[in-house]
Computed example of a mutant assay.
Amino acid sequence: MIGAGIFASFAPAAAAAGAGLLIGLAIAAVVAFCNATSSAQLAAEHPASGGTYVYGREHLGEWPGFVAGWSFVIGKTASCAAMALTFASYAVPESWQKPVAVLAVLGLVAVNYFGITRTAQLTRIIVIFVLAVLALIVVSGLAGLATDAEPLRDLTANVGAGGWYGVLQSAGLLFFAFAGYARIATLGEEVKNPSVTIPRAILLALSGTLVVYAVVAVVALLTLGPQQLASAAAPLVDVVTASGWFWATPIVRVGAAIAALGALLALITGIGRTSLAMARNHDLPHWFAAVHPQFRVPHRAELALGLAVCVLVLTVDVRAVIGFSSFGVLLYYLVANVAAFTQTSRRYPRALQVLGGLGCVALVVTLPPGAVLAGVIVVFVGAIYRAIRLHLAGRR
């Protein structure tokens, strides 16, 4: 959740809403909290690999479960490519970026292949380092603002400049940046005492991440202003540069690159487990349902994912996938909210599921139209595949 999104998402959000991205962040936080309570409540009852794919099947039927699982897989596979390319863009010159991005994907697939404990250990190291870099960025920004009150006046005067449509669009784009709490639920079969650990982990992770995002967003807006932030290719690098801390620029670039690796590592882990669950039910080829006898990971699903991401890395633009990924993730959480609404064993009131579902719909319809159209087409293609498979199975 504290990955490449915090280094990349503020620029498109500022382009959509200006300083109103802070309102967008608050809206995204409310929707995320509602979705998180749904995921936590469902995970406590169904501690199995697959997350909302499993919950949708159990509470709503096979088709809603398939839509959730397919949306997650396609959206997050595209995000894997984005994270790999983001890493390479910070780490190496442009001519080397695609080959280095492919190597990053292959390396992290190998880490995942050898078991979840190695994945967790590497994630812990990455998060600690990235938090230290973000703290450096915040301190540099505040130091540069210590004697100037003008940015604060400009910020408060321009909060509503983007209008409500722009604010909602920024919320959808920012939602992409910290929607990783679903990954916790997808690992249900590999967690100790999952009915207690998963709900607690989801809410703690979301709360801590939102605080970090809010602080960094305010500092970035105060330091750069909405217009400069909207046009920045590397916004948080520009923050330390604008503050005069030129020596910190390489550190921030390294932090962004490592954050992208952390996000990519978590994505590969989550997609592999959802693909495993779908393959068990033949919603993906059953060949992907294999679990390694020693390392206990869905090794075939992760190897196939790695190959697909490498192909995307060589063919897509990193900026084109944020809206597409948000479409898939929001559709995934819409199913989670509806499934949680039907539960009889409850931890949270149904009003949260209603608010979360309505929030998902509102954010989807305000995403860039091209992203929505691409998402609809790919979901439709997946539905056709499943309908053909069911027809052939019925004939047999």
Rank of each mutant, 00 (worst) to 15 (best):
A84S: 12
I137T: 08
L174M: 14
Y165G: 14
A132I: 04
V167D: 01
G75V: 09
L152A: 15
I74Q: 06
T119P: 00
S89Q: 13
R118P: 00
F129Q: 01
V105N: 02
Q169S: 13
V100R: 04
L108I: 02
I74S: 13
A143K: 08
I137L: 05
F175E: 09
A177I: 10
G166S: 04
S79D: 15
W70P: 13
K98W: 02
V139W: 12
L106S: 07
L174D: 01
E94V: 12
V159N: 02
K76R: 15
I125E: 01
A146M: 09
S79P: 04
L85M: 11
A161M: 02
E150Y: 05
T147F: 09
V100G: 07
T77I: 03
L134T: 10
V73W: 12
S79R: 08
T119A: 07
T86L: 12
V109D: 05
A110C: 04
N158T: 15
V133R: 01
W96Q: 12
I116D: 02
L106V: 13
A110V: 07
T123V: 11
P151C: 11
G75N: 11
L168W: 07
V73T: 12
A171M: 10
L152F: 15
A161L: 04
A81E: 07
L122D: 04
S71N: 15
S140E: 03
F175T: 11
V105R: 00
Y90D: 14
R118G: 07
A171S: 09
R153E: 14
T77E: 02
W96K: 02
A91C: 13
F72C: 03
A157Q: 15
Y165K: 12
S95Y: 11
G107P: 00
Y90Q: 11
V73E: 08
V73F: 10
T147S: 13
P93R: 09
V111P: 12
I74F: 14
F72T: 08
V159I: 15
P151I: 12
G141A: 07
L152M: 14
I125L: 11
A132Q: 00
V130G: 08
F72E: 06
E150T: 15
R153Y: 09
Q121M: 06
A135R: 02
I137Q: 04
L103M: 13
V102T: 11
Y113S: 04
V133C: 05
N158Q: 12
L174Y: 05
